[in-house]
Each structure stands twice: as structure tokens, then as C-alpha cells.
Measured scan of single mutants.
Amino acid sequence: NQASVVANQLIPINTALTLVAMRSEVVTPVGIPAEDIPRLVSMQVNRAVPLGTTLMPDMVKGYA
């Protein structure tokens, strides 16, 4: 099972992602792969992401 990126805190809309804001977890459905965490740092989310939410490619500006 592949680990996905999960919000480690509430991430407000247009907030730049940080290492502290993300964690890796095996979840269903699978979201952005955990190995992409370094690439996600400083990218912005295009919606509010609640704690525990799996990050999907369409939630991160410039990711997809």
C-alpha cells in the first residue's frame, strides 16, 4: 500500500504548504504520493483543507 499526503493541520485556502502541515499515511482513496512531499513545499492549496484530509492533485496549485 502506498502512503499518501494527509493534512496534519487545517490548511487555509491559498496557504503555502510546509513540512509541518503534511504527513504521510496509507489511506483510501489514494491521494498525492508521500514521496512528493518535498515537491509540495511552498506550493499553495486552492481550497481549505481540513485536518486529516488526503491531499488530491487538484487541491494543489501547479501540482497536476
Score class of each variant (00 low, 15 high):
residue 36 D to V: 08
residue 58 D to H: 12
residue 33 P to F: 10
residue 38 P to M: 11
residue 43 M to F: 08
residue 44 Q to G: 05
residue 59 M to R: 00
residue 34 A to H: 06
residue 10 L to C: 15
residue 57 P to I: 05
residue 6 V to M: 03
residue 7 A to G: 03
residue 45 V to P: 03
residue 35 E to W: 10
residue 43 M to V: 04
residue 7 A to P: 01
residue 9 Q to T: 13
residue 51 L to H: 11
residue 1 N to G: 15
residue 28 T to S: 12
residue 54 T to I: 08
residue 62 G to Q: 08
residue 33 P to Q: 05
residue 56 M to H: 07
residue 40 L to N: 01
residue 12 P to R: 09
residue 39 R to M: 14
residue 56 M to A: 05
residue 49 V to A: 02
residue 54 T to S: 02
residue 47 R to E: 09
residue 58 D to Y: 11
residue 8 N to E: 04
residue 42 S to R: 10
residue 63 Y to F: 09
residue 45 V to T: 09
residue 36 D to F: 10
residue 2 Q to S: 12
residue 54 T to H: 01
residue 49 V to N: 04
residue 15 T to E: 10
residue 55 L to D: 01
residue 27 V to I: 06
residue 23 R to Y: 05
residue 29 P to K: 04
residue 3 A to T: 07
residue 13 I to V: 15
residue 46 N to T: 13
residue 7 A to W: 00
residue 13 I to C: 12
residue 11 I to F: 02
residue 1 N to A: 15
residue 52 G to V: 01
residue 62 G to V: 02
residue 17 L to E: 05
residue 16 A to P: 13
residue 63 Y to S: 05
residue 3 A to V: 07
residue 59 M to K: 00
residue 2 Q to P: 15
residue 43 M to W: 06
residue 33 P to Y: 08
residue 38 P to R: 09
residue 9 Q to P: 03
residue 19 L to C: 09
residue 51 L to W: 10
residue 60 V to W: 00
residue 32 I to M: 03
residue 23 R to C: 06
residue 13 I to S: 13
residue 12 P to S: 08
residue 49 V to C: 07
residue 25 E to F: 06
residue 30 V to D: 09
residue 55 L to C: 04
residue 20 V to K: 15
residue 30 V to I: 14
residue 25 E to T: 07
residue 32 I to G: 01
residue 12 P to Q: 10
residue 36 D to N: 13
residue 8 N to D: 09
residue 29 P to V: 05
residue 24 S to G: 11
residue 58 D to I: 09
residue 24 S to M: 13
residue 1 N to V: 15
residue 40 L to E: 03
residue 12 P to C: 06
residue 23 R to E: 05
residue 61 K to G: 06
residue 17 L to P: 05
residue 56 M to E: 06
residue 14 N to Y: 15
residue 14 N to C: 10
residue 60 V to A: 01
residue 3 A to E: 10
residue 24 S to K: 14
residue 59 M to T: 03
residue 55 L to F: 07
residue 41 V to H: 00
residue 4 S to A: 03
residue 49 V to Q: 01
residue 60 V to T: 03
residue 57 P to R: 07
residue 33 P to L: 08
residue 4 S to V: 01
residue 48 A to N: 15
residue 24 S to A: 15
residue 18 T to Y: 06
residue 42 S to D: 12
residue 58 D to F: 14
residue 40 L to Q: 00
residue 30 V to T: 11
residue 64 A to E: 12
residue 46 N to A: 13
residue 22 M to Q: 02
residue 29 P to Q: 05
residue 28 T to H: 10
residue 30 V to F: 11
residue 61 K to Q: 11
residue 39 R to E: 07
residue 12 P to E: 11
residue 57 P to C: 07
residue 44 Q to N: 08
residue 63 Y to W: 13
residue 39 R to W: 11
residue 4 S to F: 00
residue 26 V to A: 07
residue 12 P to A: 09
residue 22 M to D: 04
residue 18 T to Q: 08
residue 52 G to N: 14
residue 38 P to Y: 11
residue 61 K to Y: 13
residue 55 L to Q: 01
residue 36 D to K: 10
residue 5 V to Q: 01
residue 21 A to Q: 13
residue 52 G to A: 03
residue 26 V to H: 11
residue 9 Q to S: 09
residue 13 I to Q: 12
residue 1 N to L: 15
residue 6 V to T: 04
residue 57 P to T: 04
residue 60 V to K: 03
residue 43 M to L: 11
residue 41 V to R: 02
residue 50 P to T: 10
residue 2 Q to M: 12
residue 39 R to N: 10
residue 63 Y to D: 05
residue 53 T to L: 09
residue 12 P to W: 05
residue 33 P to D: 05
residue 11 I to N: 02
residue 61 K to R: 14
residue 58 D to M: 09
residue 34 A to I: 06
residue 44 Q to L: 14
residue 33 P to K: 07
residue 62 G to E: 09
residue 41 V to G: 04
residue 33 P to V: 06
residue 31 G to Y: 04
residue 4 S to I: 03
residue 33 P to G: 04
residue 34 A to E: 08
residue 26 V to L: 15
residue 61 K to V: 14
residue 64 A to Y: 08
residue 38 P to L: 13
residue 40 L to F: 00
residue 64 A to N: 15
residue 5 V to P: 00
residue 44 Q to T: 15
residue 30 V to E: 12
residue 7 A to F: 00
residue 51 L to I: 14
residue 37 I to F: 02
residue 49 V to P: 03
residue 2 Q to K: 10
residue 28 T to V: 13
residue 26 V to N: 09
residue 46 N to M: 10
residue 35 E to K: 10
residue 1 N to H: 12
residue 8 N to H: 06
residue 51 L to C: 13
residue 35 E to S: 13
residue 60 V to P: 01
residue 19 L to A: 08
residue 32 I to F: 02
residue 16 A to W: 12
residue 30 V to R: 08
residue 38 P to S: 12
residue 50 P to A: 11
residue 2 Q to R: 08
residue 4 S to P: 01
residue 14 N to S: 06
residue 63 Y to I: 05
residue 50 P to H: 09
residue 56 M to F: 11
residue 21 A to P: 03
residue 29 P to R: 03
residue 19 L to F: 13
residue 44 Q to P: 08
residue 32 I to W: 01
residue 11 I to C: 05
residue 39 R to G: 07
residue 1 N to S: 15
residue 22 M to T: 02
residue 63 Y to N: 05
residue 26 V to T: 09
residue 22 M to G: 02
residue 45 V to H: 03
residue 47 R to Q: 14
residue 16 A to K: 14
residue 46 N to K: 09
residue 58 D to W: 13
residue 45 V to Y: 00
residue 48 A to D: 15
residue 58 D to A: 12
residue 37 I to G: 03
residue 13 I to P: 13
residue 7 A to Y: 00
residue 17 L to C: 05
residue 53 T to H: 12
residue 11 I to Y: 02
residue 57 P to Y: 09
residue 3 A to Y: 10
residue 38 P to Q: 11
residue 56 M to D: 04
residue 40 L to P: 01
residue 58 D to P: 06
residue 20 V to W: 13
residue 48 A to F: 10
residue 12 P to V: 06
residue 1 N to Q: 15
residue 23 R to Q: 05
residue 61 K to A: 11
